[in-house]
Design a protein around this nucleic acid. Structure first.
Length: 485
RNA sequence: GGAGAGGUGGCAGAGCGGUUGAAUGCGCCGGUCUCGAAAACCGGUAUGGCCUUUUGGUCAUCGGGGGUUCGAAUCCCCCCCUCUCCGCCA
C-alpha cells in the first residue's frame, strides 16, 4: 500500500474533503484562511489543476457516452455474429470475421482516445487530491488573526474561593509551593527512571497512589460526562487505519506526530496508526454513514490511551508529567446538524462542561480564544483551557517557579471539515430516507487528560506539611482516601 | 497461524462477458378504491460528479484497487471485510 498523501480512495469513504464548489466560487476566502493560519497551500496550482481536470473529464465523459451508445447498438450484433462464427466454415467464416472486425473498429478508436485522456487524468489527479487535502478549514471571521499561541486572547479566568490568581501561591496559602516533580518524588507517586528504562525518553510509571489518583480522576471525568451530561461512553480502537487519520484531519499535516505501525512490512494489507486522541475513533465511528436527522446530536465520550511522538518539541518540558508519549484521556465529541448557531451553542456547552468539571476539582483555570495561527488545519475556531500550575513557569527571585498556566484542554469547532472527509451525512430517515443528504458538523473537547491534569491537581491541593488533599469528588474513586502523604 | 465459503440497491435475493443501474420479493412514498382503514391494483423509490438558466442530459459506483476486453456485477491479480472448521491465546 502506498503511504503517500491524498490517497483516501478505498473503504466506505470517498472523501470529498473541502467543498470544491465553495472553493471555486470564493477561492479568496480559502486563500485568506490558509494565510491567516500560517499554512502554505499552492492555490494557483490547485485551481489550475481543477480546471484542467474538469475539461479532461468532460471530454472523457462525452466519449464514454458515445462508447456506451455504440456498445448497446452493436453488442447484440457482435454476440449474434460470434455465435454464427462457431458453426460457420470457410468462406462464410471469413466473411463473418470481417464483419465483426468492422463492427469493432469504431469502438476501438474511441477506446484509444479514452485511454489517452485517462492517462492524462491519472497523471495530474494525485497531485490535485494531495493539494486539496492540504486546504485548511478557514477560521471564522470572529477568530482573532495571529501568528502563534502568543497572540491568543484570554476570555476569562476562574479560581477557587480563597485563591487569588493575582497573588503568589505563598501569599495565598502561606507556604512555598512544591512542584509536581517534587511532590511526586516525595510522595512516591511516579517513577521516571524506570519509565525511561522501559520505554525511553518521555515515559513514566505512575506508582501506588499516583496510579490510583490518575485512574480516579479519569473515572470521575467519564462518569461526569455520562451521568451529568448524557454523553454515551464508548470504548474504541486506538490503533486505526490511515483513512481515519486523514478523515479526521490529522493527516497529512500531523504525520510526524503519530506512531506508525508498519504492518505491510510483515505482509499485512495495510499499516496502522496509534491515535493521539479518542477523537479519531469517536469521529470515525460513523464514517461513510448517512445518519438519521432525528438521532442528532450524537454525544459521545471515551476514555482512551493517547500516543504522541512529540516530534519537534525538542527539549521542551522533558521533565515530569507534562509532555509525554503516552497518556490517558477522556474526550467528548458532538456530531450535530449543519447549522452554525447549533454548532456554536454546542461549543459553548462543551466548554461549560469542562469549567464545571474543573471547578468541582477546585482547579484554577483560564479560557483562551485561540488566534488563527494556533488553530491547526481542521478548526474553524478553538478555545484552549489552561489550568494554573503553581510549580510551573519561570523562576522567581527565590529561585522557585512563579507558577504558570499550562494547557490542559482544547475545544474545537470544525463545521463540516471532518464530516466531509469522513463522508458522514444525515437526513430524515437515515439510510432508508429519501431526501437530500447534508454533511454533519462536528466538535470536540477534552474532558480530562491525565497525568497532565495531575500537575495542577497535586500542586493546587498540596498542604504545608507536604501532603496532598484529595478533592472530595475523587474520594469515592480512591476508596475514601482524603489525603496523600 | 492453517483450511474452506462468501461480500450485489434500506433489507432479502437473482444475475450464459453485450439495451443490467441491475430481475423478483419485502419495506418506504404517492395515487386509485373506501365513510375510514386493511386488502387489491397503478406509479414512484440509491449515491456522487460533470454539463445545463429551467427542463433536462451524461458519467461513475454491484466490498476496495488494478488488469483482460470493442464491451465486465459477470473473467484474472492484489487487498479489505464477514462467516464456518482446526490451532493458539488474554
Amino acid at each position: 500500500m502506498p503511504d503517500g498523501d491524498g490517497t483516501v480512495t478505498g473503504g466506505p469513504l470517498r472523501s470529498p474533503m473541502i467543498d470544491l464548489k465553495a472553493l471555486r466560487e470564493d477561492p479568496e476566502r480559502f486563500r485568506r484562511g490558509a494565510r491567516d493560519k500560517g499554512i502554505e497551500v499552492d492555490f494557483d496550482r490547485l485551481l489550475e489543476l481543477d480546471r484542467r481536470l474538469r475539461v479532461l473529464e468532460t471530454r472523457r465523459q462525452e466519449l464514454r457516452a458515445e462508447q456506451n451508445r455504440l456498445s448497446k447498438e452493436m453488442g447484440p450484433q457482435i454476440g449474434r455474429l460470434s455465435g454464427q462464427l462457431k458453426k460457420a466454415e470457410g468462406e462464410a467464416r471469413a466473411q463473418i470475421e470481417a464483419q465483426i472486425a468492422e463492427l469493432k473498429a469504431g469502438p476501438q478508436r474511441l477506446k484509444e482516445q479514452i485511454d489517452a485522456l485517462s492517462a492524462e487524468i491519472a497523471e495530474i489527479e494525485p497531485a490535485f487530491r494531495a493539494l486539496l487535502l492540504q486546504v485548511p478549514m478557514p477560521p471564522d471571521p470572529d477568530v482573532p488573526v495571529g501568528a502563534s499561541s502568543d497572540d491568543n486572547v484570554e476570555i476569562r479566568r476562574w479560581s477557587p474561593e480563597g485563591y487569588d490568581l493575582g497573588r503568589s501561591f505563598e501569599e495565598n496559602r502561606g507556604f512555598v509551593a512544591r512542584t509536581h516533580l517534587e511532590l511526586v518524588r516525595d510522595l512516591g507517586l511516579a517513577d521516571f527512571a524506570r519509565g525511561v528504562k522501559l520505554g525511553g525518553t518521555r515515559h513514566y510509571v505512575l506508582t501506588g497512589l499516583g496510579a490510583r489518583l490518575h485512574n480516579a480522576v479519569l473515572r470521575y471525568a467519564l462518569d461526569f460526562m455520562v451521568e451529568r451530561h448524557g454523553f454515551t461512553p464508548m470504548t474504541v480502537p486506538v490503533l486505526v487505519r490511515e483513512e481515519m487519520m486523514i478523515g479526521t484531519g490529522f493527516f497529512p499535516g500531523g504525520r510526524d506526530q503519530a506512531y506508525h505501525i508498519e504492518e505491510t512490512r510483515r505482509g499485512a494489507g495495510e499499516d496502522l496508526y496509534l491515535t493521539g486522541t479518542g477523537e479519531v475513533s469517536l469521529m470515525g465511528l460513523h464514517a461513510g454513514e448517512i445518519l438519521d436527522a432525528s438521532d442528532l446530536p450524537l454525544r459521545y465520550c471515551t476514555l482512551s490511551t493517547c500516543f504522541r511522538r512529540e516530534a519537534g518539541a525538542g527539549g521542551r518540558d522533558t521533565a515530569g508529567l507534562y509532555r509525554i508519549h503516552q497518556f490517558d484521556k477522556v474526550e467528548q465529541v458532538v456530531i450535530c446538524e449543519a447549522d452554525e448557531q447549533t454548532s456554536r451553542r454546542w461549543h459553548q456547552r462543551m466548554i461549560g462542561f469542562v469549567e464545571e468539571f474543573l471547578q468541582s476539582l477546585g482547579l484554577a483555570y483560564r479560557l483562551l480564544q485561540c488566534c488563527t495561527g494556533d488553530l491547526g488545519a481542521k478548526n474553524a475556531d478553538m478555545v484552549d483551557i489552561e489550568c494554573w500550575m503553581p510549580g510551573r513557569g519561570e523562576e522567581g527571585p527565590d529561585g522557585r517557579p512563579v507558577g504558570a498556566f499550562g494547557e490542559t484542554h482544547s475545544a474545537s469547532r470544525l463545521y463540516d471539515f471532518q464530516c466531509r472527509r469522513l463522508n458522514m451525512r444525515y437526513r430524515e430517515g437515515g439510510e432508508q430516507g429519501t431526501g437530500a443528504t447534508t454533511f454533519c458538523h462536528s466538535l470536540n473537547n477534552t474532558v480530562c487528560a491525565s497525568p497532565r491534569i495531575l500537575i495542577p491537581l497535586l500542586e493546587m491541593h498540596q498542604q504545608a506539611d507536604g501532603s496532598v488533599a484529595v478533592p472530595e469528588v475523587l474520594r469515592p474513586y480512591m476508596g475514601g482516601i482524603e489525603r496523600i502523604g
